[in-house]
Amino acid sequence: MSVVVKNLVKVFGNIVAVDSINFSVEKGEIFGLLGPNGAGKTTTMKILCTLLKPTSGDAFVEGYSVRRDPKKVREKLGVVFQESTLDIELTVFENLDLHGRLYGMGINERRSRIDELLELVNLEDYRNVQVKKLSGGMKRKLEVIRGIMHSPDILILDEPTLGLDAATRRTIWRHIEEISEDVTIILSTHYMEEAEKLCDRVAVMRNGKIVALDSPQSLKERIGEEIIVLSFESSDINVERLKAVSDGLTGLATHISLNGNAIEIHVKSASAVLPEVMEVLRTLRDVNVKGVEIRKPTLEDVFITLSGDSTSGDEHGGT
């Protein structure tokens, strides 16, 4: 195991940011940390890279404890933080060169690696430009290539593609996949597509706890094989009606939630449940169903189901 997290707890004042979590990551695995804002992803990662000390519990990187051997842990890591950690007064090259030296890279190795990485993200022309003169996305690119520059054994990426354009995001994904054979990667993201595409396994966090941990495929299967989406006129749909649908389908659906003007019903098999759904709808008078759609769940559905994201309006969702 490359990374092992054991009963990890971090408390800030009266906020329990990380609440006794456990997971382990194998060598060469890409492990995703998902969860709504404030779930505890960044805190977990900061403990892993020894910036924060655990309140209790411990984490091990290649067998070294973040409590007892922080320096050994740091030697194994490459980190990209959620917020910028560049020196904006220095140039792009200087930031990378400083990083290389800090990690003991020789001058030739630094030069060739810097050329290679700048080319990867199309920043060659900005080599000698002060970082404060770069756009937000360019800074992010620089931050990401700096984190992987010294070819670490373990990469910790906190929302690496935040603010990057679609093409660059794809470039970074491709690169992460390329290096992932030998590198263990822990990454957090709010882009479900990214997690689904890259991660071997994901942990969904909520309020400091891990509420689900599995491969994206199994997680999707867990919430149901198919989703029936019923869309309504906006005036027709409300919480009581959702409840009526929910009551009528007890035992048939794994999860029912309200999403805007639509009710989403997670089921094993849509064709088997659809007649029952229609039956229930008939009992609700004055309701016009505008459309019925059947689709496969995505990781986003899993996420919304598990993390209870308030914007999805599913506080009333049954199970």
Binding site: C49, T50, L51, K71, R74, E75, L77, V79, F81, E83, S84, T85, L86, D87, I88, H99, L102, Y103, G104, R146
Partner: peptide
């Protein structure tokens, strides 16, 4: 405040 300290503090430098 600008975050750069983190870059140094996660490096293997003592």
């Amino acid at each position: 405040q600008f975050g750069f300290l983190r870059e140094i503090m996660v490096s293997p430098a003592s």
